[in-house]
Structures are given as C-alpha cells and as structure tokens.
Design a protein around this nucleic acid. Structure first.
Lengths: 232, 232
DNA sequence: TTGCATGATTGACAATTATCAATCGTCCAT
DNA sequence: ATGGACGATTGATAATTGTCAATCATGCAA
C-alpha cells in the first residue's frame, strides 16, 4: 500500500484521531485488494467478516427482495462500508459490488471490534461515524417517502452541482440504471424524469446535464437541508 | 420517579452495563415529564437538547417536507429517541409527538455526551444502540423501496402477530392514519390494502385483524428476515 | 467496415398510488 | 336523545410509477 494511500485512510474521520498503535495494528491485519469492475464483494445475509474501505474506484451498495433490486448508496474513495454489521457481528443487510475497477482495504471484523475495545478514541470515532450514517439513511428514507421520482432526481442534480459541478454543468458519472435504482425508480422512469426537468431549467444531452436556470429547478425541487445537506 | 420505572430504564440496553455513577449522574440531571396526547415534543430543524426516553405511552417520530408528512417510526416504552442528533449536537431530522398521554424522561444532551466521554461502558452501549438503529432504518428503506403498500401492510401484520398476537389475532393499536403514514401510504390506500388482504387469508373488522390462513398471507407478503426481523 | 452487445430511450399499456368528494360510524358534549 | 366532530371507508378520477416491446445510439470485437 502506498504511503499516500495510507495517509488518505488515516485522514478518514474513522481513523484520524486514533492512536498510532491502533491504526498500525488494524493495517497489519488488513488486506489491500484490487477488484475488477462488476464484482460482488459482499452478499446480503452473509456474515460481515471485514470492514471495507474504498481506496480507489466506486462501490454500489444494493439489496434484493421480492424479485426486485434496489440501490441503497454509492461509496466513493475514501469511504467505509458495512461498519454496523461488523460491529454487531451480524449478517450484511446489503450487498456490495464494484462499479469500476477498485482498490479495497479489507479490515478483519475481529480486529475492528478489538481495536474499538482498546482505543477509546477509535470508539469515539465509530460513534460519530455511526451517528452520521444513521442520519444519512433517515434522510434517504424521508427523500423516498416525501418526494416523487422527478423531485428526487432534481434534488440529486442540485446536490451534484453543489459538490462537483462547474458552471451549472453536471455529469452523471454512473450508469443511468444505477442512478435510477439509487433514486428508487426504473431506468425508463429516469429517462422520463429527465425529460420532465427540461421544463424546469435543465438541458439534457446524454449524461451531460446543464442547469441553465437554477432558480426554476430549485422551485421545482424544493430542496430541504434536512434531506439534502450532507453535513447536517 | 418510581423505583420500578428507574429499574426499567436501567434495564435498557443503553444503560444496562454502565457504571452506577454514570447512571445516577444522568438521572440527576434529567427531568421526568408527563405530556398529554397529541403534544409535539420536538420539532425537526430545532437543536436536540435532550435525549428522550419513553417511560409510558407512545411517541410518533415523523417528518414533513413538500407539504406532505410521513411517519418514520413509533417509539414505545422503554425506548429512546433522537440519540444520533444528541451525540452530534445537531438539529433534529425528525419531529416527535405523543400518541397517548405519555411519561418521558428527558436527559440533557450535554450530560449524555459528558457521560459518554467518561464511561467506556456507556460509549460501548451507544455504539450498539446506534448500530442497531442504523440497521433498522436500512431495513425500513428496503421495505419502502422493494415492496408495494399492500405488501408492507401484510408484513407489518405478520410482525405484529409474532410480537403481540394471540391465536392469529392482531389489533391495530394506533389510529389507522398513523399506521398509513408509517407504511408510506394514504389512509384511503390503507383501507384498500386491508380490503386486498381479505383475499389472502385475513379477516378485517375495524381495528381487529384476524390472520386465518397464515400460509396464504405469508405467500402474499414474502417476509424477509433481512427486512422484517428486529433482532438481526 | 460490419455486426453484435449493451444501455438508453420511447411508446403503449397496466398497476399502483394519490386526490377529492361523499358517506358511514362512533364517540362525546350539549 | 341530538347534533357535531372526527376518523374510516368508498367511489370516481387523476397522477405516478412500472412493465413490456421496439427502436436508437454507441462502442467494441471479429
């Protein structure tokens, strides 16, 4: 593992303030693996043996049921997943697959639980991570229950624009069917939702989106800090 | 506060294993309040000043947006709410109102955070509580995204039957419009969903539900431990 | 280049869910 | 007893979302 990557992992909220010894112990027990695109890393209902950290690439968290399948979240570098299952020593509620060739740091669940018991700073960081994660899912649930598909899309675009956008330009950097699943709709519906947004200040050319009249889109989307802001 | 109630609070996973001193310090700083039915205890977007523990009665966690309103969860004795907001010293993402005359223990957020820093056992319990809560919301999100309204209702009935039911009899012990909001549908739709279930082994008489043919209902509901089991 | 595979889009239609209005039933205060 | 008030139910209709099939666009391999 490159020192640069180690530093980036160390900078994670989860590890930033832990003792050097804790961090080193965790790293020594871990595996850094490269995976091709489209590989299923973990499967729901299976035991959570490793805490996963995305070093490079992108990972889709998804879940199946009723013959349907939906995306719960996307994890980008540097981000961790299935912390809760690891801590509870329980089965995964979600599956995970790579969306791109990815580099994943796998920290044995036992090591995580041991380190937590030994290092109060680590446990404190875990509390913060879990609390944030909890609130994120509550926001997702509100998003799903209080909004229509087109509204969810509109707010997703506004958030993308705020985070990565340049001059109102947003690129959909995942397959549209993945975005559709994340937003809780079918790919067909996403196409139609994008068409709808053309009447609300948005220009669409494939995956290239241009928010020409931000205020009109905002008027349609009704963004809500208690749903859309990541840092609350 | 009656000794009996103190014992019941002490028995909560959140407090079971903490030091006596921690528990007493928290209790001394707290208020035990009675509230009438229908009172809003906390409002979303307001700071989380107290960790709330339901001693008696019932509380509805809900959220508004887009002119709509939805129920996130119901909290019964003995259960705590807005732990995550308290820990993060942040605003509430949800509002809370009493569904019945209720007795609520209010523990100052500052005290909770102080106690957590001082007592590792308390922090450990908080980790467990947050991890469980996180997984519960993920299940709720899957429930919402992977199932139709009638399916959610069917699985809700099956769970009620397992937890409180006697001989296949289940009583809907909240107003139906509250249940509808919890299940992510309108009251009108809940009525129709109940009518639908009559074709799947269920008899409905007002709030009294009878699951006559459990296997038929199961065949319709497709219950899934990764969504419906509380203890996973 | 050609052809194939894949994902996106569009159209037609069906299922699901929401909305609005009216009615029913029950409980409670007068 | 009577009349509201309130929640639940039902009907009619609209909006939203999903399904299925066909077509389009793009990129890649032979």
């Amino acid at each position: 593992m490159r020192q640069e990557d180690i530093d980036r992992v160390r900078a994670l909220r989860l590890f930033r303030d832990v003792a050097d010894e804790t961090f080193e112990t965790l790293l020594r027990a871990s595996f850094l693996q490269r995976f091709p695109r489209g590989l299923t890393l973990i499967r729901e209902s299976e035991p959570a043996d490793f805490l996963h950290v995305v070093i490079e690439g992108a990972v889709e968290m998804f879940a199946a049921g009723n013959g349907r399948e939906t995306t719960i979240s996307l994890v980008h570098p540097i981000g961790a997943f299935i912390l809760a299952a690891v801590l509870k020593d329980q089965v995964n509620l979600q599956s995970a697959r790579t969306l791109e060739p990815s580099q994943i740091l796998m920290i044995p669940a036992v090591s995580v639980r041991q380190a937590m018991e030994r290092d109060p700073a680590f446990m404190s960081a875990i509390v913060a991570e879990l609390a944030t994660g909890y609130r994120t899912v509550v926001k997702d649930l509100k998003n799903q229950k209080l909004r229509t598909g087109a509204e969810r899309l509109a707010n997703w675009l506004l958030r993308q624009e705020k985070e990565r956008g340049a001059g109102g330009k947003v690129e959909i950097d995942v397959e549209k069917r993945t975005l559709a699943a994340l937003l809780g709709m079918t790919p067909e519906n996403l196409s139609r939702a994008l068409a709808t947004l053309k009447q609300h200040g948005v220009a669409v050319r494939g995956a290239q989106i241009e928010i020409n009249e931000r205020d009109r889109l905002v008027r349609f989307a009704h963004p809500d800090p208690l749903i859309d802001d990541y840092d609350i």
